[in-house]
Structure formats: C-alpha cells, structure tokens
Design a protein around this nucleic acid. Structure first.
Lengths: 344, 344
DNA sequence: TTGTAGGCGTTATCAG
DNA sequence: CTGATAACGCCTACAA
C-alpha cells in the first residue's frame, strides 16, 4: 500500500541501498542511476517513512515545548517566544511538539523525564513562570537537553534564559521618581509566579532605598488580569492621600488601572501616572500609550532555542543561566505629578 | 546505553517477547514472571522507545495542528480552540505537533500532504482563516484524516467546522435596529479573510433588506487590529451625519472605535453604540463592556478534534461540514440612539 | 504460560 | 559505484 524504497529499487533494478543513497542526497551514485531512481520515485509519488527514518536515526525530529496551556497559549508572550524559537530553528527540519505543564503527570516531573527518555522529543524548551511548578525541582537530575525559558531555576546546573525583572521595576520607579513622584503605588502579580515575586520585591526595595514611606494600601494585590488591575485601581484612586503614580507588575493590570481612572474622570497622566511591565503590542497602540518595561521576549526565545539546538547537535546538555536586560519604553501615560499634589 | 526489553529479558531469564507482553499490559503471563519483570524494569529505569513503538505501530502519536503562526498563535481564539482540542483528545495519549501554514512549503500544499504521508502525524487539524491560503485548494485530493477549523472550504468533501458569521452580524445589526438605530456603520476585516468577507456581506445584506441608505463612508476598511479600529472610528465619528451605531467585524477593532470616541469626548453608548464580534475575554471586562457576537470557539475545537479522532480510529477520512451557531452577548456598549439624532 | 521466527523501512558497514 | 548483510526495538503470529 505504501511505496517504499524497495519498490523503487525493484523498478530500477538496483537494491534499496542505492535508492537510499540517492534519496538521502548522498553522492557516490552514478548520475544515470540517480536520475532513473529520482524519476521512478517521483512517478510512484514516493514519500519517506518518517517513522522508519526516526527509528533508525534515533531522533524524533521534534522539539518539545512545555508550557502551561491555560493562560500562556493565547498570550503575546507565548507568540513572541515562539517567534524567537522559529528564528533559531528554521532550516533545521525540526518540528514543534506542544506539552501542557499544567496536566497532572508534569507536576511530579514524570512526563518531562519520559518525553526525552522515550525519544518522543530531541530536546525541550520549558516555558515556566510558576514557582509552584513542582517539576522544576526535578529538572536537575535529568540529563536531558533542555532550556528553561522565562524563569531562573534555583539549581544552577539547569540551563535557563530569563530577564531581569528587578531591574525593570527599578527603571520604572526611577523614571517616576525623577519626574517628581513620591507617592508611588504598586499592583502585584499573582503569588505563585516567581516573576511576580521579583517585581514586587524590587518595588519594595526601591521604596526602602528612597525612603518612600507608603501606606500599606499603596500595595494592591493582583493576578495579572485587566480585571484585577481595575479592582486595584479603584482601591488606589480612592486612597487618601491618593498616589500620584502607579506601577503595575504587568501591562494588563496597568490597563485596568487606566480604565478605572477614566471612570473616575481622572486624567492619565495629568492626574495620575501609570506604568506597566511587558510592553504588549497594545501598550503602544492605546490612548494614552503606556510607559512600560520592555522584555526582549523574541530574543529570549531565539537564544534559548539556539542554545538547545547546539547542545542537541553536540549530543550534550546545555548549561548556563542567562539573564537578559530589559529597558523602559517611556510613553504618554507618565508625566510629572499634578502641582497641587506637592502641597498635600 | 539505553535499556531495552532485551536487557530486561536477559536479567529475568525470559525472552524479550514475554517482557513485551508484560510492559504492554497484556495478560497471559504468570504473575510471578510479571512481577519479576516489572521489578527489573523499574530497577533498570526502563522506558519504552517511542520511536520503535511508532515504527512498529505505524502511528506517530501526534495530531498535527496547522495554523498561521503570525497572528493566530497568541490569540484568544487559538487558546480556546486548543482548549476544545484537549477536551476531545485527553486520555488518548496523542500529543500535539504544531505547523506554520504561513511558511513557504504550505502554500503549494506540499507540506500538508507530506506530513501525513510521511507518517509525521496521525491526523491534521487545520486552522484556516485566510481565503488566500492556496493550500486549501489542494486539500481535496489528499485522502488524509483532517478537519478544517474556522473556515468552510469550497469543496464539500473536505471536513470542516466553522461558525455562522452571517448570522452573527445579522444579530448585531438587528439588535441595534430594534434599539432605534438607523445610521449603522461598519468596520470591515482584512480583504483576504473569508470570515471577514462573510461578515461584510451580511452587513451589506442587512442594510439592503432594511432600506438603510448609508453613505459609502459608513463602511470603513480595517484589518482586525485595534489600530485600524481607531482609524476607522476617527473617520466615522467625523462623518456628517454621524452614525449612531458602529458594528465592527471583530472585537479588537470595536475597542479601537471606543477609544476614539473617548478621545472625542463622546460617550459610549449614550452618544454612539458599538458592537463587536468574537467575544474576547476582555469584551466583558472593559468599561463599557462590549456588546458582541459570541462564537462557540471551544466547542468548535472540541467537535473538530473529536471528529478527527473518530476517523483516525476507524482508519477513515472524516467528512461533513458543520456550521455552528453564534449568539449575541448584549452588554453596556449599545443603547438607544441619542434622542436629538432622530431629528437630524 | 512462554518461546521462536520474522517483519516493519531505513541506514551503516564493509566487501566487491 | 553498487550490493549484501545486519542492525535498530518492538510487535504479531504461530508454535510448543
């Protein structure tokens, strides 16, 4: 039913070995033989059997991408990481296999270990943002070609590419401080994201270093959604004294804060400045455009995939933890505080 | 280096055949033998070689998901479709392989044909929204287990699951009409999306059926981005007479129109009503929340994956074109037109 | 209950 | 330049 090299060989009066040589693009075959084989292969509509080829080469030809499906799959962050992966992996013939780190078998590290040991994938890119992902603790023992993206595992032997969250928040706070803001509030990310933890810690540190004695209400909980940003915004804009600036741990929550300000007829940035983190596409598109911390997400994706690829090609295990630098995109949503606020 | 069944067999003093039986979970093996084999397998940390198993079973264990990476990956639409896929495919042991329909080999249909013929995937879910995707024309000839999602190919033998765009726009227009609106404008989607074409056609038909003689400026081009919605909004809100309602071919453009209204200090919905299409998560979260057409995206995903799965299990080719119904989520962004407008 | 034989489609090795 | 042979790891079919 399926055309094999054997079929072509019979038709051409050679052995399948010669056919293999031709179809694998090696030289050392007489041009006439090669042409004949190619012609027959085309005529019979031959396609290699990837299963047989993989079995033989002991490679699956798939790069596994492990990520929490709920929440990340539809995010700009994921799309951009993937863009980076593609840059690194195009022309390699490798395809992408997707795995959900939220599914049960992942949390005890089983699935991850098996994916590679069963030869289901040739390497793994792990998009891990939760500190609570138990499987991160199990990565160390697996001698598996893999790179953790977006998070820096505690074990230094696990290869990772992440970005400097602390510095990003620091940049945003400094920017507001230098504009004259002293009452700077913060909207936190969810408790179980390491990234969110670091952003909050950086805000706390900034306040301490600059002797900003903010009331506790200036730190509002959030969960990275627009809705939680709106809730936080409502609390902050009714606080006395009202903060003159808000830093949100991500852009979506910053959007929520801006929405709330609008509802209360407060102008952003004239009455209150708002800064975010992530630099989503919509951050530049909105009105007012959002001052926000830009992560080099595409570059992170590219670097991690390239690192993985090299280690696969060398039959080795990647190593090294890279922390990429972030930058501040200053836009319309931040300005000096309203003058009367200085007197409050 | 890698533990095989042979290793376990030697250790247990049986043949690899018996080991195979045990590890494949079949019965007909003496409990004592089974226990011993299991014990040794665990001790040696055995994992099946998926490549060998796949080669033997002639199945890759992957479901291919073909989609344009740029634009769809990272969209709520994609995330929700995937949620549906998972519902249908969980507990099947099948994994997901991702392929970019925007990459060169796709456009002549080559890649798609090969993916299956090379046994790289066991079936294909094709997320196709562009009419210009040339490969859609080639689907017919491939006797391949695949389902097209989100689009209805012209060839009726190609299995597909899509939704009723026309009815959605009709619902939105009727809703506005029944509120008293007569000057209803429209923001189009990109020219090469079949979905966008159908939505525009439905608007045109509605206007004709209800004798709404709108000036050409009431139909504004767009490309499904917030930015294009803003541009369209600017044109519409300066039009004389100004429309009292705007239907956008998707939510993101509706958001853009609302942004523009805000800039011009027009109230939504008091001065102008706005409706969208897609029911993104943020449609319900924003202020004002957006009246929009809800597509059952998760259900579309689930149905398409279930259909594919069945045909794979039966070694058959799926067939049938399903068009799912949409509904209108009425929210805050639509209201009766301002009273003075009736007199203009 | 267990073993033997053979095949799946490709590629590596070595001989001619 | 081409062929013969074997190997990859698992599974099916049949035999004992």
């Amino acid at each position: 039913m399926n055309i094999t090299m054997e079929d072509i060989a019979r038709e051409c009066g050679v052995t399948k070995m010669t056919v293999s040589r031709v179809l694998a693009g090696r030289n050392g075959v007489k041009p006439a033989t090669r042409d004949k084989i190619m012609a027959v292969a085309n005529r019979l509509n031959y396609e290699v059997n990837a299963l047989a080829r993989n079995f033989n080469s002991n490679r699956s030809g798939f790069i596994g991408i492990a990520t929490p499906f709920d929440g990340l799959l539809g995010s700009t962050y994921f799309e951009q990481l993937f863009m980076g992966f593609r840059r690194a992996l195009k022309d390699t013939g490798l395809d992408y296999a997707l795995f959900d780190t939220n599914s049960a078998p992942f949390n005890d590290g089983e699935k991850l270990r098996r994916l590679y040991r069963q030869k289901r994938v040739d390497g793994l890119l792990i998009i891990a943002l939760h500190t609570t992902d138990r499987f991160l603790g199990t990565l160390e023992e697996l001698r598996t070609p893999m790179v953790v993206v977006g998070e820096q595992p505690e074990c230094p032997t696990v290869c990772s590419v992440s970005c400097n969250d602390e510095h990003g928040i620091d940049l945003a706070c400094r920017h507001l401080f230098s504009l004259g803001h002293r009452r700077i509030a913060f909207v936190e990310g969810p408790r179980d994201f390491a990234t969110a933890d670091r952003r909050r810690a950086a805000y706390v540190k900034f306040c301490r270093d600059h002797q900003l004695e903010n009331p506790p209400i200036y730190t509002q909980p959030g969960d990275f959604t627009v809705r939680s940003g709106r809730d936080a915004g409502r609390a902050l804009l009714h606080a006395k004294p009202r903060p003159t600036a808000v830093v949100a741990a991500n852009d979506r929550m910053a959007f929520g804060v801006i929405d709330t300000a609008r509802e209360l007829n407060l102008s952003v940035p004239n009455d209150i400045s708002v800064a975010g983190f992530d630099d989503l596409r919509s951050a530049a598109d909105r009105h007012p455009s959002l001052t926000t911390v830009h992560q080099p997400v595409i570059e992170m994706g590219e670097l991690s995939a390239r690192t993985l690829l090299e280690s696969i090609n060398n039959n080795g295990i990647p190593s090294g933890q890279t922390v990429m630098e972030v930058s501040l995109a200053v836009r319309e949503s931040t300005a000096p505080p309203p003058s009367e606020s200085a007197s409050i």
